[in-house]
Design a protein around this nucleic acid. Structure first.
Lengths: 263, 263
DNA sequence: CGACGTGTTGATAGCTTTCAATGGGTGTGG
DNA sequence: CCACACCCATTGAAAGCTATCAACACGTCG
């Protein structure tokens, strides 16, 4: 396997560094390379917290609650960094959606290394902050949105990351199943399916096969997604001024402190 | 006001540094001090992302969606750092639950300063990671738990942060209203109230007045909270083995990557 | 003491889940 | 290349849970 190559990609794309330096040597020393076939779990040594770099492929990060319930906390694509804790209330696993190659680091050592180099620390902090803000957005969606809004938000968020823009519309090749979508949105597969059907009947999307979706009306989807800046509703019960035009997108996922990085 | 004193507290408690050094001078130069009376919003200049340090008091971080819906993304207590983005899908505001004193920094400059000093960078990264993991936990709760589980989880999480242990039981003086609890859990005040009543009737908690709650049976609450390591349920439909004893707590909030801090 | 804000309790409606059955897509083997 | 089997997705009907609407109780404050 080309773990060497993956490592170089990691250094350059994740931190904009050449592998040659001191930092590169340190990181390479604590790095483990592994490949994960589609639908398999990454076999991680969770004796300590880990940081993963997804060199290629895509994956889902899943939290398991009791009674077999699973919440997909994030979908990961090539180039992403993932922080995986070893302890805590829920157990987390990373499962490949498409054959994946990844690099694994022990978290403490990884952060120690990065913290020692200003530019890398800056980049890492920024990434963590983005992840936090995305997670907050997810929390808002799970806490406040209905099924239709969740699915619309999901499609827009995916378009943001892996959509192929085609003039006015956007082509989406979903790497995950309906179950995965449901586990990510806190809905059942049936509900997800019904909402997709509904969006298709409304003319906002079109579907080809079971994994291809074309977003025909991004602005319309944004209106259905229930997010975006509050339409200056003063009172909680105010009717619904429909968003002030909406900002079209979804992309730059909203950002603000979640759980604040507390003491 | 004693903004001077707050800044010193910030340097020492947040980063374990003496205010004298180069870093201290830099941070002090970009720092703004403000006080926020109970129930007021922090009046922040959101022309750019901000980082806040809560020197004293407590606060809620609120995200506003459309139709006046509000999701409390986190409760913050003295000593917490909070990241507040200026753009994005939802608008975030910080509102004091008790008279608060806080320091505000422009995010970019703040992180640039911190990244330049290894130990501080390490601390900041760790805090961000904790915040991310807490946020993921919140997402799991919002996505997978029912009302009873959410309220039980909430009480345990609060006990973790501001509870006063009293032998077997734990005394909790909630600084927030039922509405705040609801907005945090994605439930209505009525549902929160009903669940608290239910827990009281079960003997797991006792209430005094409208804001005092005594947790009488932490283990029992943990069993009600639906979280914790999956009870090795192999199949999604397996009945429910009730957790394997449960790990009592809630505290060390689960940890794993949310949204992964992506590219 | 009375008024307001907050919390509790009750009844009903709405949305999502659950349970069940059908349809479609994909992949393998003949 | 077609047939079959299996998995996944879709659709329908009913149940369950939470939101909503409404009324009442409690506590605080003027």
């Amino acid at each position: 396997m080309d773990s060497q190559k993956n490592f170089q990609t990691f250094m350059r794309s994740a931190f904009g560094l050449e592998p040659g330096g001191r930092l590169g040597a340190q990181l390479e020393g604590i790095c483990t390379s592994l490949t994960v076939p589609r639908a398999d779990r990454a076999d991680l040594d969770l004796s300590c917290d880990r940081v993963l770099y997804l060199a290629s492929g895509s994956a889902k990060l899943v939290a398991s609650a009791s009674r077999g319930r699973e919440q997909i906390v994030a979908f990961q694509f090539a180039g992403d960094l993932v922080s995986i804790p070893s302890g805590g209330h829920h157990r987390y696993t990373l499962t490949a959606l498409a054959d994946a190659a990844l690099l694994a680091f022990p978290a403490r050592e990884f952060f120690d290394c990065i913290a020692g180099e200003q530019e890398s620390a800056r980049v890492l902090i920024e990434r963590l902050r983005t992840a936090l803000h995305r997670c907050r957005d997810k929390a808002v969606g799970l806490g406040q949105k209905n099924a239709q809004e969740r699915v619309a938000s999901f499609l827009l968020a995916m378009a943001e990351r892996i959509g192929v823009s085609d003039g006015n519309s956007c082509l989406l090749e979903l790497p995950m199943s309906r179950r995965d979508v449901g586990d990510s949105l806190g809905l059942t597969i049936e509900t997800v399916s019904r909402q997709i059907t509904s969006l298709r009947e409304t003319g906002l999307i079109a579907t080809q096969g079971r994994s291809e979706i074309t977003l025909l009306d991004m602005a319309g989807l944004a209106r259905c997604s229930g997010g975006h800046e509050a339409a200056r509703a003063q009172t909680r019960k105010l009717p619904q001024f429909d968003l002030d035009q909406g900002d079209g997108g979804d992309a730059a996922l909203a950002m603000a402190a979640t759980g604040g990085f507390a003491s």
